[in-house]
C-alpha cells in the first residue's frame, strides 16, 4: 500500500500506540509477577528441582521446604513477633500521626511550614546512623529486645507518612461539614467522631496498613535491637545466610505472602489513599 492516504495513517498510529500500551502493561505486570512466580515455584519444589535447570512451569507442590520452616525452632515465634510489632506500629503511628495531620489541616499556627518539612526530615537520617545510640538508650531504659521498643522505632519511621496522608485526608473534608455539625449540636470532639471520622475511615485504614507494611518489611532496626524476640525479617536474615538455596526461597516466600495478602485485602482503601475514588 504505497498510496496510503492521510486518513489511513491515523488508525495505523493508533494501532501502534495501542500495541505499545499493551506491551508496557505486560512488561510492568511481568516485572512484578515473574519474581513472585519464581519464588512460588521454587518454594513448592523439592531441593533437587530448585538447583536444576530449566524450571518446570507448574510447581510440583513439594511442601518439604515449607514444612521444614514450620518446624524450625523459633520460626513461629518470629512470625508472631512480627505481627505484634507491626500491629503496635500501626496503632501508634495512627494515634500519634492522625491528630498531627488534623492540626496541620485545620489550624493556622506559626512554624506550620517548618513543621511539615521537619516531619519529612526525620526520614533523612539513615537508620544505621541512629542504630548505635538507639541501642545504647534502649539498653539503658530496658526497652531493648522488646516488641514495644522495636515498635517505637518503626512508629518513628511510619509517622511521617501517617501525618502527611492524614493531613491530605482531613484537607479533603470541607470545613463546612464540621461547622454544620457544630451548629447542629456537636462539640469539636463529637463533630470529629460523628462526621469527620466516618468520612476518612477508609483513608485512615490505608494509612494504617501502610504503617503495618513498613514495620513488617523493616529489617535493620529489628536485627540490631532484638536478640531473643526477633521479628521474622531479622530472624530470616540471621538464619538464611547460611542455609541452602531452597530454604532461602521458602523463607522469602514466607516473608512476601502475608504482606501481599494484607495489601490485597485493603487494595480499595489504598486506592482511596492515593486519591482515586473508591465509590
Amino acid at each position: 500500500m504505497t498510496d496510503a492516504t492521510a486518513s489511513d495513517v491515523a488508525p495505523d498510529t493508533r494501532a501502534t500506540g495501542r500495541t505499545l500500551y499493551i506491551a508496557s502493561v505486560v512488561f510492568l505486570c511481568a516485572w512484578v509477577i515473574v519474581p513472585i512466580y519464581f519464588l512460588l515455584i521454587n518454594t513448592l519444589s523439592s531441593p533437587e528441582t530448585v538447583n536444576s535447570f530449566p524450571k518446570p512451569f507448574w510447581p510440583e507442590f513439594d511442601l518439604g521446604s515449607l514444612t521444614f520452616f514450620a518446624g524450625f525452632a523459633g520460626m513461629l515465634t518470629a512470625l508472631k513477633n512480627s505481627v505484634i510489632v507491626a500491629a503496635m506500629t500501626m496503632v501508634m503511628s495512627i494515634v500519634i500521626g492522625a491528630p498531627a495531620g488534623y492540626a496541620l489541616s485545620r489550624f493556622e499556627f506559626p512554624g506550620k511550614g517548618l513543621f511539615r518539612l521537619l516531619i519529612l526530615l526525620t526520614r533523612a537520617f539513615p537508620l544505621p546512623l541512629l542504630a548505635l545510640p538507639l541501642a545504647v538508650m534502649f539498653i539503658q531504659t530496658g526497652l531493648d529486645d522488646t516488641a514495644f521498643g522495636l515498635a517505637l522505632v518503626h512508629t518513628t519511621l511510619a509517622i511521617p507518612f501517617a501525618v502527611l496522608i492524614t493531613f491530605s485526608l482531613f484537607s479533603g473534608i470541607p470545613m463546612e461539614l464540621e461547622e454544620a455539625a457544630w451548629t447542629l449540636g456537636c462539640t469539636r470532639l463529637t463533630a470529629f467522631t460523628k462526621v469527620v471520622l466516618p468520612l476518612i475511615l477508609p483513608g485512615i485504614t490505608a494509612s494504617a496498613i501502610f504503617a503495618f507494611v513498613i514495620s513488617w518489611n523493616e529489617v535493620f532496626a529489628a536485627a540490631v535491637l532484638t536478640i531473643e524476640n526477633r521479628t521474622l525479617t531479622a530472624f530470616l536474615l540471621q538464619n538464611l545466610d547460611t542455609s541452602p538455596l531452597h530454604l532461602k526461597f521458602a523463607g522469602g516466600f514466607i516473608l512476601v505472602v502475608p504482606a501481599l495478602i494484607f495489601i490485597f485485602a485493603v487494595r480499595k482503601y489504598l486506592f482511596a489513599m492515593w486519591g482515586i475514588a473508591n465509590r
Partner: peptide, 20 residues
Amino acid sequence: LSPKDRGISMVFQNYAVFPH
C-alpha cells in the same frame, strides 16, 4: 457560647450535607 448552645441553626453555601 459555643455554636451548639446559641439556639441557632445554619444553612451553608455548599449545603454541607453529610455524605455518609
